[in-house]
C-alpha cells in the first residue's frame, strides 16, 4: 500500500517537474520505461529526476552508473527510494 502511494506521488512529481503537458499521472504505468520508447525522456530529464530525488526524498544519487537502473521506471525509482529511506531513516 505504501509502495502504491509512493508510485502515485512519483508520477505526479514527474509530470510536474518535467512539464509533461499532454501526460497525466494516470497515463504512466508503474513498469513503463521512462526513457527512449516509454515516455521518451532524455538526458536533461535525467538531471531533473536526480534533483527530484534530492528535493522530495532527500536522496542523493552518488553513483551515476546506477542511473539507468534507478530511473528505468516508476517502480524502480520507488524501490530505490524505499531502500535508501530504510538505510537512512
Amino acid at each position: 500500500m505504501v509502495m502504491e502511494k509512493l508510485m502515485e506521488d512519483l508520477k505526479t512529481q514527474i509530470v510536474e517537474q518535467l512539464n509533461l503537458q499532454d501526460v497525466k499521472p494516470g497515463d504512466i504505468g508503474n513498469d513503463d520505461p521512462l526513457f527512449n520508447e516509454g515516455l521518451g525522456l532524455d538526458s536533461i530529464d535525467a538531471l531533473e529526476l536526480i534533483v527530484l530525488l534530492q528535493q522530495h526524498y532527500n536522496i542523493k544519487l552518488l553513483n551515476a552508473e546506477e542511473g539507468p537502473k534507478v530511473f528505468y521506471s516508476v517502480r524502480s525509482m520507488a524501490e530505490y527510494i524505499t531502500t535508501h529511506q530504510k538505510a537512512n531513516p
Binding site: 517537474q17 536533461i44 538531471l47 531533473e48 534533483v51 534530492q54 528535493q55
Partner: peptide
C-alpha cells in the same frame, strides 16, 4: 529558495 542547492538544469539552460 533552495539555498544554491539542488538547482534544476532546464531553467538554467
Amino acid at each position: 529558495e533552495f539555498k544554491e542547492q539542488m538547482l534544476t538544469p532546464t531553467a538554467f539552460i
